[in-house]
Design a protein around this nucleic acid. Sequence first.
RNA 1: UCCUCCUUAGCUCAGCGGUAGAGCAUUCGGCUGUUAACCGAAGGGUCGUCUGUUCGAACCAGACAGGGGGAG
Length: 384
Amino acid sequence: MENFKFEVLHECKQTGARVGRLTTPHGVIETPVFMPVGTMASVKGLSPEELTEMGSQIILANTYHLYLRPGSDLIERAGGLHKFMNWDKPILTDSGGFQIFSLSSMRKITEEGVTFNSFLDGSKHFIGPEESMRIQQQLGSDIVMAFDECTAAGTDYEKSVEAMERTLRWLDRCSKFDFKGKQMLFPIVQGNMFADLRLESLKRTIPYAKCGIAIGGLSVGEPKPVMYEMLDVLQPHYPKDMPRYLMGVGSADCIVEGFMRGIDMMDCVLPTRIARNGTAMTYKGDLTIRNAKYKDDFSPVEEGCDCYCCKNYTRAYVRHLINTDEIFGGRLLSIHNIRFLNRLVNDIKKAIWEDRLKDFRDEFFETYEFRREQDRQAFGKNAE
RNA sequence: UCCUCCUUAGCUCAGCGGUAGAGCAUUCGGCUGUUAACCGAAGGGUCGUCUGUUCGAACCAGACAGGGGGAG
């Protein structure tokens, strides 16, 4: 397993958060790290060169979507995902497990796996643990995710146990797949919002974790304090010699709170999705750039940001592009949002080195305005 | 000069006897391992004007005004 190695370079004395270095066949990833999502073998609207310029080190792609189109056979023939999409840095592929959850209306789960209807043409398909591993092998990603069952917030205890147990049995099957040392399997902890289940899931998942471990099934509709509580429960029990990946979480506040709780990797569609929908992420909170109040605002999206968008364009211009459905608007905000999260992670990394991440976190929330009333209240920050 | 058609939300139009709807635009909200350049909500109209008919008119009749087309 010499293709993969993880070293912890520093541990924050205030929080236990870490700075580390994960070596993969396609290069080194410095953690903590935020990973943009490129479901269809493309981070929507952005080129690999642009991603590199923004400081992104690794991206996600998706088993489910690429299996359906253009087909994992085709990508294998193309020479693998890296070559196919011209991205030579590390790639992590999700297993399709999340689509069991997000496309729940079109599937049926059995012990063997999941039968589902394609969202493209309704055709029937089957993916189980073995199929997911096989597809991810064809894609040739560096990090392979286990095929798991993610449950929604509010799922009752009994059903949460059921999904957790099935995830563990599926994990055992995933672990038997031979990636020949070229790809590394990350198992996924489930357990919904039940502390005892989370702990049990973690304990029984650790034996399968060789080079990394993931926390799934969070940010699925629960209030943020509940998610943080789950992370608090888990933090003392993670293996120390491998990265911990919190799946699908990527608002600025959650990133700060997550890395503070010992997480090393996160991914999210949020920065690119809300960018296309007209929202910019900043240190002061999310800015709905499409709002009329930015019509005559000739300042950059975020003062002091070093991204291509902020260095060259104004809020008024970006708003104009978004409001006229010009693709360039979504591109500019995507560039800004990803760059913003990378800057935020860099600042977090610096604070870890300086053993002051807790202080950094407090300073961050002094100026960060929550977007949703629900979050303001949960944080004890009332709208003025 | 005559004939004919049109005039309803900012725009394009639907409604054709029981006091108004859509799409787009506008404004706002939401998006967290992407079925998402998406989804949702709100604001906005004395139905060209006037006079009739009718229990009741955006809808029927007449006149007038503005506009399109045609004939001379």
